[in-house]
Design a protein around this nucleic acid. Structure first.
Lengths: 343, 343
DNA sequence: AGTGCTATGATAGACGGGTTCTTTTGTCTA
DNA sequence: TAGACAAAAGAACCCGTCTATCATAGCACT
């Protein structure tokens, strides 16, 4: 096979040896100059620096990594970059990584194909990473049986706890309790739920929170509706509820986009928000897209989540070892889509 | 300094030599097994594979990269992951990279600090990348003087052409022409413009397209308004126009989010869309957030852009060399926010 | 017995940066 | 002028993978 040329005339990247030859010194002296070590004659140093400049020397990442066994990058595996959850994950982790002077090696799994933790780990492990982060937005078939690779920190971003892997996530269960308590305090009892697709882990926990909150108050949860996170699916669900449920006083939509659709549907059905029906969502994601955003929602601190994820995947100093499950609480943002129910 | 242990008891990753010792074979046999080469006895192969499994062997990325001189990863530098433009860039490039069995090494520059191409290149070059992609959403101070590093493919994602670097972008100028032609054909002439922040490169080209389209028809462009891409800024601009411009029959907002805000403002001002005023946007980004999205807009093929970017950054086979400037046209999506103007 | 094949080992080298040890050179002092 | 000492520079080797030889043993077939 065509190896890259090892002679001097080819396009092989410039190595320390090349610089040394050009400057008429040994390779170690070049190393000393490159790393700012002492014991180099001032003139020699300048000569070497000039040679570096001229040849366009840049140290080989591979050589350096091979030597010190670190890559200064953390692997992140997601299935679909564009989904709000994944995007916010990338953002949060990117800022945590930058604080540690670290890059992110991003692998997007096929959006269609079945997603297994073993496969994701296998692919990440073949890359230059000091830690592995896997976003598990839907339950992986091998979650229970999965064993992390020894010798490399692994974190799964999910609400599920795992006996052998640290998991971190925003508290998708707790956010429901925050919203439901807010609605309870206003006096709502008949609170319908519009959820995301049922395979979604976030959906499962948000829905469980809604259901548990009702049952704790001995209110029978009405059948939850299933959307696909989009505003249109929220609209359809809202329309259905407006026409079929005369007792409902509030809707909890599992994300802001569906909540926004639901609000439009209610208004198209002649119902006022919040006077007739209160609506809440989750994510606080509407601001850029909707003017005068009035939706009561829960905001997650995604940067904090990113930091937690990063620091458990790449344990800085002896922090390693214990497997934990971290749930980061959200913050209730009360706007004007919720009010005391009509009596 | 504390080197990682080179003995067998430490946490040093498992190497081929370790596997060879455990399986009682030579290192070459392990290599043959690892790479699926022939001429290995079936039983020996199994023994080696068992040893690999037990020790948890995975080939060293550094060692392999050092040898083959390739990293199978492409560097991507953006300033803010969450902005629509950057997100769509990551998405498009991720899918192109996956097709080439390649990862993305993502570096997010500080959102606040000044952004120079030299600095971005310097940081990317120290990472495991076969090519460098820089998203230049605002003009870099050193754009004119910038010289790409020799020996590594470099692509800047921007509308500006560069004499020594290949640049690729969606056609942010042409999209304006598409929309303006659509409005002209309907009979509009007084078309106001709501732009993004003026430092944005996308904004500069979208605005230039609007202005040129008008001037080609000998229509004097009215003062463009400046927003910040958000729906709220679009709302304010729309409100201002509704109150101050009685002759306007159409608004071109430089993205969908502002267009959505502008529509809300027009309706709050008692104007109908599209009967009284037509509104167009760019990006086709509303679908998830707004129910019954009726906005006429331009959609860009972001995956095609990603492919172009990727393939110029990592030229597969002798494609290298020529510096080009690629502009990928958008597609006009006509919905129901545009109509024949009131006479 | 000779030929040809397969399986494996031994050894070495390339790749590039960094560390350690050693040698050379230069300067200062007695 | 000799000895002490520090600065400067070089030589060797390691990290792990892969390949290129060459050697050797074993086996089957003619």
């Amino acid at each position: 096979m065509a190896r890259r040329p090892s002679n001097d005339t080819g396009t092989r990247p410039v190595s320390m040896a090349d610089v040394a030859r050009a400057a008429g010194v040994s390779q170690q002296t070049v190393s000393r100059v490159a790393n700012g070590l002492p014991n180099v004659n001032k003139q020699t140093r300048q000569r070497v620096q000039a040679a570096m400049q001229e040849l366009g020397f840049r140290p080989s990442y591979a050589g350096r990594s091979l030597r010190d066994g670190r890559y200064h990058s953390v692997g992140l595996c997601v299935n679909d970059v564009t989904k709000f959850g994944n995007l916010s994950m990338i953002d949060g982790i990117a800022s945590a990584a930058r604080e540690h002077n670290c890059a992110i090696t991003l692998v997007e799994m096929s959006k269609t194909e079945e997603f297994s933790l073993a496969e994701a780990t296998r692919r990440m492990a073949a890359l230059p990473v000091d830690g592995i982060i896997i976003g598990m937005s839907r339950m992986a078939p091998d979650f229970e049986t999965f064993d992390p690779l020894p010798g490399i920190g692994t974190v799964i971003v999910t609400m599920y706890a795992h006996p052998r892997v640290t998991t971190v996530d925003s508290d998708h269960y707790g956010c429901s309790l925050l919203l439901m308590n807010h609605l309870f305090e206003l006096g709502h009892e008949q609170i319908r739920y519009i959820g995301g697709p049922s395979f979604s882990v976030d959906e499962q926990f948000r829905r469980a929170g809604w259901q548990d909150a009702l049952e704790r108050r001995h209110i029978k949860p009405q059948t939850p509706l299933e959307g696909d996170w989009s505003a249109n699916s929220g609209y359809e669900a809202g329309r259905y509820l407006a026409e079929h449920d005369r007792t409902m006083t509030a809707i909890y939509a599992a994300n802001d986009q569906m909540a926004n659709g639901a609000i439009a549907a209610l208004r198209d059905s002649g119902l006022r928000v919040p006077e007739d029906v209160s609506v809440v969502g989750v994510d606080d994601s509407l601001d850029d897209f909707v003017a005068h955003n009035e939706l009561t929602t829960v905001r997650f601190d995604l940067h904090q989540r990113g930091r937690e994820v990063f620091e458990h995947a790449v344990p800085e100093a002896g922090t390693a070892g214990k497997t934990v499950a971290i749930r980061i609480p959200g913050q209730l943002i009360i706007r004007h889509s919720t009010a005391i129910p009509r009596s």
